[in-house]
């Protein structure tokens, strides 16, 4: 009896060792490509060509100079990406909260129909309307403008869905009633009382909206043809072209620069991001 218990313990020990090895292996697999990217950003092309190394070298400055001497302007790209992502995030978070509030607090005739409609349009792929969208913006002379990349964020069905769930589970209508008695207008109630209460949901959704907009390639690639308007993901595609063909050091440098802000955001906010991902799947 005692023997079988120790045997079971031993097997569990072996199993656990295997599990840890697999998990550590997967973690290394997650880190390694990025590690090589950051390390190679500091190595000269000759060093990169001569073999793999996991330790940084001293050519950071040279790579930066080569990178920026051609058509690659990372600061400009960073700024463009930031303007688009920050404004679209602000708009989508605010207006989604407003729409969700309208859906939860007021009892209007079309409420249920409107919510069903939001559910229906949630899964429509952007590519499905891209050609019409491009042509329409072209007719309005809004290609090479940031507006077509920012304004559509006001209608974010998935985010409205999420915020509605959040309000349904946390908001007590008594707060709304109380502020009405205090003479607060409906709009003021939303802005001054409800929005601050929604901070956790707003923050989670803001992170995801920002990252999604920051990483978006398809729409900016279609709309922005003027080089000074390029976002970082489009700039990345320049690194594939002929201009950097043999300058591997600066290619890695360019890649590292585009990824760096996301690594910073991720490691600062990973706890909330993981919690947010988990929440996204549990829609019950």
């Amino acid at each position: 009896m005692a023997n079988s218990v120790t045997a079971a313990k031993a097997t569990r020990g072996i199993n656990k060792t295997i599990i840890y090895i697999v998990c550590i292996g997967l973690a290394v697999l997650s880190i390694l490509p990025f590690w090589i990217m950051f390390v190679n950003a500091t190595r000269s092309t000759a060093e990169i060509q001569s073999g793999l190394s996991l330790l940084p070298s001293t050519h950071l400055k040279t790579n930066w100079d080569v990178l920026t001497s051609k058509s690659f302007d990372p600061l400009k790209g960073f700024l463009n990406s930031f303007i688009i992502s920050a404004s679209s995030t602000a708009l989508s978070v605010y207006f989604s909260a407003l729409t969700a509030y309208g859906l939860v607090v007021y009892n209007w005739k079309w409420r249920q129909a409107f919510f069903t409609f939001i559910l229906c349009v949630m899964l429509i792929p952007t590519q499905a309307s891209a050609i019409g969208f491009y042509k329409f913006m072209y007719q309005l002379h809004l290609n090479n403008s940031f507006l077509p990349l920012i304004l559509p964020a006001i209608a974010a069905p998935a985010m409205v869905f999420f915020m509605r769930q959040y309000l349904l589970s946390t908001l007590s209508l008594e707060i709304v009633e109380a502020s009405r008695i205090d003479g607060s207008g409906e709009f003021a109630t939303f802005n001054r009382i409800i929005l601050p209460l929604m901070t956790p949901a707003l923050a989670t959704q803001a992170i995801f909206a920002f990252v999604a907009s920051w990483n978006n390639l398809f729409m900016p690639l279609i709309l922005l043809t003027d080089k000074s308007k390029y976002t970082l993901p489009i700039m990345v595609s320049l690194l594939r072209g002929d201009i950097y063909k043999t300058e591997f050091g600066s290619i890695y440098m360019g890649l590292a620069l585009t990824a760096l802000p996301l690594f910073v955001i991720y490691f600062l906010l990973s706890r909330y991001i993981i919690a947010g991902v988990a929440l996204g799947g549990v829609k019950e």
Binding site: V211, W214, L217, V236, T258
Partner: peptide, 9 residues
């Protein structure tokens, strides 16, 4: 979370 374009290149 890292830009897919960056990962592709």
């Amino acid at each position: 979370i890292i830009t897919a374009s960056t990962i592709a290149v």
